[in-house]
Amino acid sequence: MSRASHRAACAALTLLLAGGPAMADLQVAVGATSESTVALKAEVDRIVPLSSLHPRLELRLATGLLLLSSDEEDGNAALTLAPALRWTFAGDQGAFVEGGIGAALFLKTRVESRNLSTAFQFEDRLAVGVPWASGELSLALTHYSNAGIKEPNDGFETLTLGYRFPL
């Protein structure tokens, strides 16, 4: 990642965290892409109960920053908006599964050998997690793609391990 991209990403993360909503949580995740690029994600989120639909259903509203770094100057970063439905298995504090479709806006239209064609990408995410210590531990598989808006549509995936804790 170039110095300018790195500085822009750090500035965006600082603004995101400073301007996050009251009573929000922070999730930090680390992993890799399908191209073996290191992925770091930081999100500020809020859980909205959907108990009127079902007592175990919630909506997770998250916004964050995805940083992709590689050995070359191919790094990239994206601002993300990621709503997800969450199903909790064992009451309020049990294991959960999440799934959602969000959006990402990348600084560049390339991730290593992948040509994204557009800076705008959809973010499809599946995650599983459990309560751990005072937060939550989760494993997420995320797919980024422009859904055929423009060719080529060389999407990519990330697999991340994250920890979410109250701010």
Rank of each mutant, 00 (worst) to 15 (best):
T118P: 00
G99K: 02
F89N: 07
Q93C: 05
K108V: 01
R110P: 06
A78C: 07
E112T: 13
T118R: 10
R110H: 13
F106K: 00
G75L: 11
V97H: 10
D74F: 04
L85E: 05
A95H: 08
T109Q: 13
E73I: 00
G100L: 11
I101T: 12
S113C: 04
L107G: 04
R110Y: 14
G99R: 03
T80R: 04
F89Q: 08
F120A: 10
T109S: 11
A77S: 13
P83A: 09
A104W: 00
A104Y: 10
A103P: 01
A90H: 12
R86I: 01
G100S: 09
V97F: 13
R86L: 02
V97E: 06
D74P: 04
G94T: 00
F106D: 09
A103C: 11
K108T: 08
A84W: 00
L81A: 14
N76P: 00
L81K: 07
A95V: 03
N76A: 09
A119F: 07
L116A: 07
A84F: 00
L81V: 13
S113H: 06
F120I: 04
A119N: 15
D92N: 09
K108D: 14
L105P: 01
S70N: 11
R86P: 01
G102S: 06
L81P: 08
G91Y: 13
T109N: 15
G91L: 06
D92M: 11
A104M: 05
N76F: 04
V97K: 10
R114F: 02
G99E: 07
G100N: 08
E98L: 14
F106E: 03
D92G: 05
A82Q: 15
I101A: 15
L81Y: 15
A82W: 12
G94N: 06
S113I: 08
E73M: 10
A119P: 00
D71L: 10
R114G: 02
T88F: 00
I101L: 13
D92H: 14
A77D: 04
T109L: 04
G100E: 10
T118Q: 05
L116W: 08
L81I: 14
G94K: 09
G91M: 06
W87A: 05
A82P: 05
Q93F: 13
S70P: 03
R110C: 08
S113N: 15
W87V: 03
A82G: 03
G99V: 05
V97N: 03
E72M: 08
A95D: 02
P83S: 09
A95T: 04
R86M: 03
D71Y: 11
A78D: 03
A104T: 03
G94P: 02
T80N: 10
I101R: 00
L79G: 06
R114P: 11
K108H: 10
R110V: 05
E98P: 07
L79Y: 04
S117A: 15
F120C: 07
G99C: 09
L116M: 11
K108M: 01
F120K: 01
P83L: 08
A95E: 10
T80D: 02
L79F: 14
I101C: 12
E112C: 10
F96T: 01
G75V: 06
L107Q: 06
N115A: 02
N76Q: 11
E112G: 02
F120V: 01
E72P: 11
D92V: 04
G100C: 09
R110N: 14
T118W: 01
L116N: 07
G91Q: 02
V111N: 00
